[in-house]
Design a protein around this nucleic acid. Structure first.
Lengths: 196, 196
DNA sequence: GTCTATATCTCGATAGAC
DNA sequence: GTCTATCGAGATATAGAC
């Protein structure tokens, strides 16, 4: 095993575990030791790969961002934009157990980072959410629906809200019920008549 | 000025400031010194009034709970349940600047407390949200609408979601747009025909 | 009852051996 | 490149003077 490969491997493990542990415990309650232990890397050695703790948070955010890009990329292969949005909602419901325990990874991260007085990182979580909003808006636009960006806000807002409530009430079934409602709402949306 | 009065006064000031500062900075980033400074009480003296930091968090939650009770109590004086819900939504929109900067006080607190591995306090924030859900469900019930509790979840979920997005994107106007949509949604809800 | 001084602990970060 | 030992900052909490 070449050193280069091992180094890259440790960096990857640290990034993956950082994303998971930071989601579960929150940024402020998570110590570098927690992440190091999860990634099976000695504590002091973390600083060889990441200069500061914030660098690890940033890496975790990139991980979420990459995951989102990969997922929407797969959805883009579906021909009908409405089916893409349906698949998105179904994916949310599938993740209901995790959401009920720890909330939406990006949403809870954004809440925490937005509390910071210094401007560090508080834009970053917003960027990931913005990207999801843009993709969603594109789908509504492709469906020729009016105010596609507002519809995107409504849909993503509903997702963040139901994740937060499911989390606060520890009730995964809430995600199922709201998911069903969202699918019905999505089906009810009609493009305006163009035959005038 | 009697000592008793002064003591009660300091306790009150500590509670009020704790609610404000914890909302703005988050639980984990807020130190006892922060709260003590805001309440104009010496740091070490805080422990005369609150045994632990968690006790202060609990006091802040009670403050939010009392505020909610006071507010819904005032809304209850409106004769029409639909008007009560409209007033609730309008109050959310009025608070858009605070929400865009710091999020919903109870919602962000719940997110943070739910990350705790130990069971301390993570139920408490959920209780306040549950109380709001129950009140909202009662209004939909009074309107003879089907599945009133699901409608309550949808409405409060929308509020939590739009607060989170407004916060993450630092966009208070998002609250205005979503508020308008929610008012339209509320108006569109019809009780089923009972004349059969 | 009120406040100061400080004990104690934990964490992020660094220095330097290997 | 890897890891151990440790420093120093800053936090909660307490002991005890007034």
């Amino acid at each position: 095993m070449k050193p280069r490969a091992r180094a890259a491997d440790k960096r990857r493990r640290l990034t993956t575990e950082a994303a998971r542990v930071l989601h579960e415990q929150g940024v402020e309650r998570t110590t570098l030791a927690d992440i190091a232990r999860a990634a099976d890397v000695p504590v002091g050695n973390v600083y060889y790969y990441f200069k500061t703790k914030d660098d690890l948070v940033l890496a975790a955010l990139s991980e979420h961002s990459a995951h989102l890009a990969e997922f929407t990329g797969r959805l883009d292969r579906l021909p009908d934009p409405r089916d893409r949005l349906k698949a998105l909602i179904e994916a949310w419901v599938d993740q209901r157990e995790v959401a009920a325990r720890y909330g939406c990874p990006t949403g809870t991260l954004a809440v925490e980072l937005d509390k910071r007085a210094d401007g560090t990182l508080d834009e970053e979580a917003g960027t990931v959410i913005r990207r999801l909003l843009e993709w969603t808006g594109d789908q509504f636009r492709a469906l020729d629906l009016p105010d596609p960006d507002d519809l995107a806000v409504t849909l993503i807002s509903a997702y963040q809200g139901m994740s937060l409530l499911a989390n606060a009430l520890r009730d995964p079934d809430l995600m199922t019920r709201e998911g069903t409602r969202l699918l019905g709402w999505l089906n009810s949306l009609q493009a305006p008549d163009q035959t005038a």
